[in-house]
Simulated assay, not measured.
Amino acid sequence: MNQKMTFYIMSHSGARIRELTISKHMIRLMLLFLCGLFLAFVWMIYDYTRLFVAASELPVLHSELMQSEENLGIQRQQIQIFAKELNLLKSRIMTLSEFEQKIRTIANLQTPEGGEGIFGLGGPQVEDLDTRLELSETHASLIREMHDRVVQLDTGSLERIDGFETLLKSLENQRNLLAVTPAIRPADGWVTSRFGYRTSPFTGKREFHSGLDIANRIGTAVVATADGVVSFAGDRGAIGLVVTVDHGHGLVTRYGHLHKALVKAGQKVRRGEVIAKMGNSGRSTGPHVHYEVRLNGVPVNPGRYILD
């Protein structure tokens, strides 16, 4: 049986008393309805407050969004600038590769095995980055390409460093070889006898002349025709007072019939340095210098080593 509650309503005007009977179940429903209504009211106030706060922060968020978009635009421009710089750097490395190859061609040097590299003349062609792309959607792809290009540039630059180091070493070796290769006249004067077979001025018979005779006045300067070390300075009988210079690599030069030696054994000399005075010592028909070039102990034509 449902319990009920009875309410009596009285009026101050003298009207009759009214009676209102409500079940307790209905009262509970009314209380729940009032509580729900109260909670809905509280929620509306909270939501309104939250929206009000959010609305007050909207200008700040809008400003931050505009700033972020501006920063993003600047970053995209910087990405494009960086891509252009990578293209320029790639071009410079390729120019260095071509320059290295030209030097090797001029110096008659072979390209080291495996030294062509990514950006070498014989390597695969690497396309430039496309900096004209709209970065709103493709910047991630461009960044990946830029990362790959940085790796390629790093590899290419290391190979160019190795290539120039080997080139420098080869050029240094060639420079040293050229420095010790006879290349100038040993003295001023007139060639009176060349390399090869001739009629001996003393016996009248055919003999082999192992050098080049250059005649001039006694005391005329005799110079070293290449860098080297004096291996002998003294009398050698028929060739008279002689200076011998060892240039390394099997090359030796001899200067005979001298009047005076200005160097001694063990002394280093440079190309063009005065090492003696022309004379008429030994078996000679007049003042001159007998100039010999020997390669691995065998006399060779000195005229081939005179370039001035």
Score class of each variant (00 low, 15 high):
Met1Asn: 04
Met1Pro: 04
Asn2Glu: 08
Phe7Lys: 03
Met10Cys: 04
Met10Tyr: 08
Ala15Leu: 13
Arg18Glu: 14
Arg18Lys: 12
Glu19Val: 12
Phe38Met: 13
Phe41Arg: 03
Asp47Gln: 11
Thr49Leu: 15
Leu51Thr: 09
Leu51Met: 14
Leu58Trp: 12
Leu58Val: 07
Gln77Glu: 12
Ile79Leu: 14
Gln80Leu: 15
Leu89Phe: 04
Leu96Asp: 11
Glu98His: 08
Glu116Pro: 00
Gly117Asp: 07
Gly117Pro: 06
Gly117Thr: 08
Leu121Asp: 05
Thr131Val: 15
Leu133Ser: 04
Glu137Phe: 12
Ala140Gly: 11
Ala140Trp: 09
Leu142Val: 08
Ile143Lys: 00
Arg149Leu: 12
Phe164Met: 15
Lys169Phe: 06
Asn173His: 08
Pro182Trp: 00
Thr192Val: 14
His209Leu: 10
Gly211Asp: 09
Asn216Asp: 11
Gly219Arg: 07
Thr225Arg: 01
Gly228Asn: 05
Val229Leu: 10
Ser231Asp: 03
Gly250Thr: 05
Gly250Ile: 05
Leu251Trp: 02
Leu258Thr: 03
Val263Thr: 06
Arg270Ala: 09
Arg271His: 09
Glu273His: 09
Gly279Ser: 12
Gly279Trp: 06
Ser281Arg: 04
Thr285Val: 11
His288Leu: 07
His288Gly: 03
Asn296Ser: 12
